[in-house]
Structures are given as structure tokens and as C-alpha cells.
């Protein structure tokens, strides 16, 4: 059991996210595909077959899983091709196309078997949407003007480039951290309450410190940032 180097997994995740944007796929489809790649990256499979074919096959499985029936295999191949080769022409239908398509169709079977058909995905976008909806009513104008919802979804999607986060933390906590991270980045302050909002909405045992730690993980591991100051100091500023 060897883990692929981090950068490579990240490449695959970025590839899937970009292809997903081109396909107008929903976030959970793309993220489910990334989590499949993540699980497969802990098996030997990742060393034996082309990683890009593997990632593409995960995306086609996720498309089926999430019932995105308007997206076909060919759309997926085209968009992946476009992301990988931005300067080339669109792929012509020909021997190469059919070869790739056949390979991906067969690869779906391998993916499903290696995952033992366990492709359930715990969707962090659901709790995120719930929290966003609850907080939006406090500051409707700021949320609209500063596009908080769009950014939160984008950051949450980016978090999947560091899948360990989802293996170690609960999706609710991640959703809370993403929201805090974005609000901090956009300089939005919520009205002061006796307790932080997430303790009211989620559970009171979740400390602000823990959330800040998670925010830090997002900043450093997902976005590769060097933090100049400790988060505590940032807050006091």
C-alpha cells in the first residue's frame, strides 16, 4: 500500500474540479468522484493504471451515481481533454477517441469493484447550505453583495483537494469552518451573540478554537498559505 505523492493526487482533484465546472456538474458529483479517487489512491490500482483514466472513470461513475443524466461519457472525455490540453483542438471522433472511451467504460467496472460498490458519499454541501440559509437572514445584503454563498461552495469544493480533512473531521464541522473562513476573508462580521452561531446551530461542545484550527488547516493545506500570524491574533486585529 503506497500513497501517491500529494501533488499528483492534487492534480487529479484539480482536474476533476475543472472538468466538473466545464460540465456544469453539481459540486457533490465532482466531490464524490474525488473521494473515490482518494480511496483508490490507497490501493495498488493507482500504481497500475493511468491515473487520469482512473480519475475520469470515477467522474463518469459519479455522474451516474448522482443522476446527472444530461452528462454523457463523451462530454466527460471532452471536458477532461480540454482541461489537460487547453491549446489543442476538440477531440475528433476516431480511433483514439473510441479507444479512450472504451478504456473508461471498462475502467468503471474496475473502479466499482475496487470500491466494493460502496460509493456512498457524505455530502458536506448539505450542512453548508443549511448554515448558509440560517445566517443569510441576518445579513442578507452582505451575503448578496459579497457572494458569500458562491464562495463558500467554491471553498468547500477546493477542500476536497485535501481529502484527509473529510476522513478526519465531521462534515458539519468542515462546513462551519469553511463558512467562518469565507466570512473572515470577506471581512463580514456577524452580529454578536452570547454564544458563537455554530454552537447554537450545531452543538455547544464545538469550541471556537477547534473551528479556528480547522480554518488554519484549510488555509495551509488546501490553499498552501503561510500564515503570518496566529489566527488568534488575526481575530484581535
Amino acid at each position: 500500500m503506497t500513497e501517491i505523492p500529494k501533488a499528483t493526487f492534487r492534480n487529479l482533484a484539480v482536474l476533476l474540479i475543472r472538468a466538473g465546472i466545464r460540465l456544469r456538474a453539481r459540486n457533490r458529483t465532482v466531490c464524490s468522484a474525488i473521494m473515490m479517487v482518494n480511496r483508490l489512491s490507497k490501493t495498488d490500482l493507482i500504481n497500475d493504471v493511468c491515473n487520469y483514466t482512473l480519475a475520469t472513470a470515477c467522474l463518469t461513475v459519479a455522474v451516474k451515481q448522482m443522476e446527472e443524466n444530461h452528462i454523457g461519457i463523451r462530454d466527460v472525455i471532452n471536458s477532461v481533454h480540454r482541461v489537460l490540453h487547453p491549446d489543442e483542438k476538440m477531440m475528433e471522433i476516431g480511433e483514439q477517441f473510441w479507444g479512450i472511451r472504451y478504456g473508461i467504460a471498462r475502467m468503471e467496472f474496475i473502479v466499482l469493484r475496487f470500491l466494493s460498490f460502496d460509493i456512498q458519499f457524505e455530502d458536506p454541501f448539505v450542512p453548508l447550505a443549511l448554515y448558509l440559509d440560517a445566517l443569510r437572514s441576518w445579513l442578507p445584503r452582505e451575503f448578496q453583495e459579497k457572494q458569500v454563498i458562491e464562495s463558500c461552495n467554491a471553498v468547500m469544493r477546493d477542500c476536497f483537494t485535501f481529502p484527509r480533512l473529510f476522513e478526519e473531521r465531521k462534515v458539519h464541522e468542515i462546513a462551519i469552518a469553511v463558512l467562518c473562513f469565507v466570512l473572515r476573508g470577506k471581512d463580514i462580521e456577524l452580529p454578536r451573540t452570547s454564544k458563537p452561531w455554530f454552537q447554537k446551530l450545531y452543538k455547544s461542545s464545538l469550541s471556537s478554537r477547534r473551528v479556528r484550527k480547522l480554518e488554519k488547516v484549510i488555509a495551509t493545506e488546501v490553499y498552501g498559505l503561510q500564515l503570518e500570524e496566529s489566527p488568534e491574533k488575526i481575530k484581535s486585529n
Partner: peptide, 17 residues
Amino acid sequence: LANRTSVGLISYNPFLT
């Protein structure tokens, strides 16, 4: 959010999205 630097995080590039 990426364009904001005032919050103490060093500036970083927008990516992925």
C-alpha cells in the same frame, strides 16, 4: 475573497475555481 489581503492572511492566488 482571494483578492482581500487585509485580514492578515498573506495574499494568495485564486485557483481551482
